[in-house]
Design a binder for these strands. Structure first.
Lengths: 219, 219
DNA sequence: CTATGATTTAAACGAACGTATGAATCATAG
DNA sequence: CTATGATTCATACGTTCGTTTAAATCATAG
């Protein structure tokens, strides 16, 4: 008898996370998932009810922690600021930096979940978008408010747009670590993959802050 | 007998473009496509051979023009510059601005194709990525070289990363015009949809240039 | 007109899909 | 030990998938 260190449910979630990341939701079958997890085909429906519920649980397992952490960091920063507006760079780091630093934390899903998240934000499935919207709403509103206060001279609509652009740049930074290598055909010879991740955070952060602080467009 | 203004092949391409945009490649069936196009189920395999070939043709129809236009604009700018390096903003506008201005050109696919492209760049399907890589390689190399020359003081690796970030921001700007509205839950009350598109180009361009010119990160 | 090749059509193919079922097996409490 | 509920198992259900086939229809040249 083999030593089964992980519960069936966890094994399924891990396999589903990796396969959804690699092939998308529609492109991944229940038989692939249960095959990779080493469990019976019926196990998904027994433990999660359906494929849709499984997908939601894959996200909830990671997003609950991430968004609580984002809230916790923002709470602490605002407490220390004593009512003063926060620095924009601190807000951006709390939101995007917290996300990116998940990539180094293997027990929180690591790079696999981040890639899944990055590509899911542009995916079409209605129920996934609705689920993410609900899951994200509270934390998103808090961060938008913080940015409004931190940048009082910038029109709110402009801030929302730039927040959106930042999401896109970050999503690509994660999801495209290998996806867009084909398209861009770059070689970054001098760095191994762990090095690349460590340097990605400051690199991306510089870019995001540059974009956020850019002169307003004149129409 | 009805007046059929469009050929069968064109009708299929139009339907496939819209449906792939709305539901993704795996999420769209041949029966949906032929149903919306008002043609027989077998027509796709007769005219295009397979679903994969159809997808490639959907992209080729638009990308051929786009990338030729990008080349043409860059050629003309370099001719006028007489060997001098180009302005980074001119290069960025030639690459991303040309793309965005497709959105207003309905006979080039308009906003539908741009959304499809934006979401496909983060999609997983192996054959699509390989196809896009081949389709994009030449124009990508030309623009990278132009940026290297325009920004001689910036390390090439940094330029490539920032080009990548710019792609992500642009992709989200397009694909997420309604996709991420759920997540961000914004209201931009003062603008209708045509207005929004007109203002998107300068808005995004400001953001991209701010990110591209941002101070280099110190490690 | 007739002949010929291109196109469209209805129907079917085998394969893969998500899900459901009932029996077998397991863990645990009494 | 036995009893009970949780879990795993092999198997099958009904649908839908992309693709193929052969006959029907169309367009056009001689």
């Amino acid at each position: 008898m083999e030593t089964r260190t992980l519960e069936t449910g966890e094994r399924i979630l891990d396999a589903a996370e990796r396969l959804f990341m690699a092939h998308g939701y529609e492109g991944t079958s229940m038989r692939q998932i249960t095959g990779e997890a080493g469990v019976n085909l019926a196990a998904v429906n027994y433990h999660f009810g359906s494929k849709e519920s499984l997908m939601q649980e894959v996200f909830r397992r990671r997003l609950d922690w991430l968004n609580e952490e984002r809230m916790r960091v923002l709470d602490e920063m605002e407490r220390e600021a004593n009512g003063q507006p926060l620095k924009p760079s601190a807000i951006v780091d709390a939101f995007f930096g917290t996300l990116l630093r998940m990539a180094g934390d293997e027990k929180r899903g690591g790079i696999t979940f981040l890639r899944l998240l990055g590509r899911t934000l542009t995916e079409p499935s209605e129920f996934i978008r609705a689920f993410l919207a609900h899951e994200y709403k509270t934390v998103m509103d808090r961060y938008k408010e913080a940015l409004f206060r931190a940048l009082p001279e910038v029109p709110k609509a402009e801030i929302v747009w730039r927040f959106h652009f930042m999401l896109g740049a970050t999503s690509y930074a994660i999801a495209g670590t290998d996806a867009l290598r084909l398209v861009t055909d770059w070689q970054i010879e001098e760095e191994d993959s762990t090095d690349r991740l460590d340097r990605l955070v400051p690199r991306l952060m510089s870019f995001l802050m540059g974009g956020l602080r850019a002169p307003l467009p004149q129409y």
